[in-house]
Every structure is written in C-alpha cells, then in structure tokens.
C-alpha cells in the first residue's frame, strides 16, 4: 500500500527517531511511505493564533501538492494531522474560506480541489493494515510489559474520524497485539500542555505531572505516544516536572512505532530508542 507521507517539522530533527521508526515499521508491514516533495510547515497552533487565513493557506499548499497523487496522506504528528484535517474540512464547509484560500493558492500557481484524504499513522496501522497483520509480524512478544497508551488530544479531537474522542481504544488494541499489556490510564486523552511549555511552564508542568503520576500509579513501565509534541513534553521535560513535584520515579517514553519495532525485532539503533532523555529501564532493556 502506498501513501503520501507528511512528516512535519518535528520529525525532521527533534523527533527524528519517530520518523525513522515509522519508516522501518511501515516497510516491514508493506506500507510504502513516499514523502511529499517540498512540504511546508502546517502552521500548528502557533501560526493559527496569529492569522487563521494564512495558517489555513499553509495547510492548503500541502494539500494541493498532495492532490497530484492518487494516494491517501499519512501524518504521524497529531498537531499536523489536526491542522491539515481541519483545513480540509473547513474548505469543504465554508464557502467564503474556500474562496479566499483558493485565491491565495492561485496566486502561487496552485489549486486544491478538496480530494485529499488525511490519515494519522496509527489509523493506517490499525484500520488499513489491521491488527491481525501486525500480530503476524511480531517476532518477539512484549509479554508482561506494562504500557501506558497515551493518545493526547489532537489525534481524536476535534474531528474524531477513526476513534472515540473520549475513550479511544485503537492504541490499547495495538499494544495488546504486540503481546504487551495496556495499563489502566484514565487520562489517556488529556492534553500534555506542550503548546504552553515555552510560554507558561508552570501550567504545562502541572498537566504533565498528572499524566506521569497516573502512569506511575498504574505501574506503567513505558509510556507510548502518537505525537512528537507529547513525546517531547513527557520525555524531555520529565526531569523538570519530577524536580518540581518531587517524583522519585522515571518512566521512559517511546513513540508507538518504536514499541512496534521492538516487537518486530528491528534493530534498536534503527529505531532510535535510546535518543530519549529518560533512560530506558530494566523492563524495556530486556527487548533491546
């Protein structure tokens, strides 16, 4: 199966291991990810705060570029996924917006007809490939590994296409398919606060504290994420959060594709599992 791949800015550098592991796992599953040529930033929440029309246009440029190919577009970053999906749906719904965006695109010699189907990487694995196919590729079951499946916000909201916005289960089911155990994690769709981490650290840390605490209380040995920003929030800032709230524990955070890669016995170096700031613990090291 072929997809147009939109990695997004974070996966280029700071979360390169997410991209690396996604490409490796996809290859194994027979998913061909063809990177969209000359893609640009989706604008994220930050550009949208500044000027919505320009921000929507930035997304529209990507959609216009992707429309040249008759393939679904797959996005591993939840923030990019929501930006692109929201733009696509507003272009459909709102005539005035559509008109203005088209004018902006036209000025740049582009056109978007509204045909691109946008999917999150998790959606592609769970729905298009299927858990049975994934199970069949598992070489080393992650037996007994307690995993906190963290969805975050923007993968299921606001346009909940493929899972419930309050109580999603696709990641839990994927964890089970890998032989691991998803722990009880009632905060699984709470916001990680990453958009506030630079501007209001105190508030962001308080949100991250709740997530880490909930994972620890339910004996999670690893937290997996589906978004580079969630990963950054829980991994890179974990030390700071721990210091502020006096935590005695450390929980490694992996991109969900890294966990899949471990179960598929893809070399851990290729997956970049050691690029996180929180060191791997015993439970995880057993699989490396």
């Amino acid at each position: 199966m072929k997809y147009t791949y939109y990695p997004g800015c974070s996966l280029e550098v700071s979360s390169k291991s997410y991209s690396d592991s996604a490409l490796a796992v996809s290859e194994l599953l027979g998913v061909e990810l063809i990177e969209l040529e000359d893609w640009n930033c989706c604008g994220a929440t930050v550009y949208l705060s500044y000027e919505e029309l320009i921000s929507f246009s930035l997304c529209a440029r990507n959609l216009a570029l992707a429309e040249k190919y008759d393939r679904d577009m797959v996005v591993p970053c939840s923030a990019c996924y929501t930006s692109l999906k929201k733009t696509a749906s507003y272009i459909q719904e709102n005539a005035e917006l559509r008109n203005k965006i088209n004018q902006a695109l036209q000025a740049a010699g582009l056109e978007y007809k509204g045909k691109v189907n946008i999917k999150h990487l998790l959606e592609v694995y769970v729905n298009d490939i299927g858990l049975d196919a994934i199970k069949s590729k598992v070489k080393r079951e992650l037996k007994g590994l307690k995993v906190a499946p963290y969805y975050g916000c923007q993968i299921v909201r606001p346009l909940h296409g493929f899972d419930d916005p309050e109580n999603p289960t696709s990641l839990d089911r994927l964890v089970e398919a890998l032989g691991a155990t998803p722990v009880y994690f009632p905060n699984k769709t709470s916001c990680c606060g990453s958009s506030l981490v630079a501007t209001n650290e105190e508030l962001a840390f308080r949100m991250q504290k709740d997530l880490l605490l909930c994972a620890a209380r339910n004996d999670a040995e690893v937290i997996i994420t589906v978004c580079p920003l969630c990963h950054m929030a829980l991994d890179a800032y974990q030390k700071g959060v721990g210091k502020m709230y006096g935590f005695k524990f450390k929980i490694p955070v992996l991109h969900f594709t890294q966990l899949m890669g471990l179960a598929f016995e893809i070399p851990s170096k290729k997956l970049g599992v050691k690029t996180g700031l929180v060191p791997l613990n015993k439970a995880l090291s057993a699989y490396i």
Partner: peptide, 10 residues
C-alpha cells in the same frame, strides 16, 4: 492560556 486540546469543543 487555551492549549488547543479541543475537549471543550467535543
């Protein structure tokens, strides 16, 4: 302060 998590919206 809004962190754009869309919980209010859904």
């Amino acid at each position: 302060i809004c962190s754009s998590c869309y919980l209010c919206t859904v």
